[in-house]
Design a protein around this nucleic acid. Sequence first.
DNA 1: CACCGTCAAGTCGCA
DNA 2: TGCGACTTGACGGTG
Length: 419
Amino acid sequence: MSIGYACLTVGVPNTNFKSCIMKNFSESKLLELISHNLNSLENIIDYNIKNNIKLFRLSSDVIPFGSSPINTLPWWDLFSNRFSAMGNKVNSNGIRISMHPGQYTVLNSPNEDVVYRAIEDLKYHNRFLDSFDVGTQHKIVLHIGGIYNNKEEAITRFITNYYKLDESVKSRIVIENDDKLYNIGDVLDISKTIKVPVIYDNLHSQINPFDKEKKDFHWIELCRETWKEKDGFQKVHYSQQDVLKRIGSHSTTINVNGFLDYYETLEGRQDLDIMLEVKDKNLSAIKCINCTTNNRKISALELEWTRYKYLVLEKAPTNYLQIRKLLNDKDSYPVISFYNLIENALQKEININHSINAAQHIWGYFKDIALEKERSSFFKSLENYEKGKVTLKTIKNLLWKLTQKYNQTYLMDSYYFIV
DNA sequence: CACCGTCAAGTCGCA
DNA sequence: TGCGACTTGACGGTG
């Protein structure tokens, strides 16, 4: 079983993607953007390898205007060396990649033009994955599309248009239930005709159920039948509702207790990959991996603690002390209590005294090496923050600059700087 | 450097 | 029939 995350990272330097608006489009601009984005993508892959994350969705935005007629660059050729290098890393580390065109790629539209663009977009996604030289278990996830006042016809159109796709594109397509129009029953039905694997999304099914009496595992077992040998392990999407936001909004982080409730219903099945859809991305991936791994070593939690500790200290000093105590027994693996305390701390409102205390802790790394003007600048900012003149972000930016300047590797990976 | 409107895509609900 | 909402992260212009 692999657990992974989608497209972007949180708190990993040099992993951002750039784009431009059509108005500023030019070939040289495009070359520059692609080159930058491929660097970022390789950094993400390196990060995933280092953190033992074996499942990752590639962003569609790596090649700006990837399927647009304005992009006539043979990027797969121009950057073939870069793709090979990344492909080797993916293959040799047993990483499974995937892509997921957005909600605007609609294969079943009654508008021919829209369908044409959808087909072009799927070709782009397939070409992108092909550039890594990976097999057909590396999938392209697609929703069914719109209804246009006649669901039956819309489904027929989806099937007809699916058959128009190239064999190589079809070999990667998998279909997913959505939160509005096509529930898991609909998607499984479509799969019966076109024999395409089905991804079960738990949150979509909760919002748009076929039969709300049926549990997640029921659907996962039915979907399992749609995955063949050449498709690799069955994949599912897992996410939780953000309680403060609109129905369907993904949560900030994956709540460990909720995830484990779900995980336990899977009856120990290991031939299943779980793609998390969550705002804190890689952070939740590491969390869920640590919660489900058979390799229960406290060193994994200690490593996590180096990343979370100042954020916890800033939000909840009590939790900070509790976690330190929790990690004292080196033969234990108190993973659930550990993440419960972290999640609890991060939910708390910022308290000005606690945040000043945490900033001073970080300052401790620099107090003996910083220049006098850096010292005065820090304390001046701290004073201004206390008076409400500047935000905490200013303080953190200042400390982040010092972290980089003085190469404080221990602080480099700290989530403290992700405001 | 912080802030915020804009961009890009297609569908659907509502005047 | 046409317009606004929906979604997302980055752009790009302003202060």
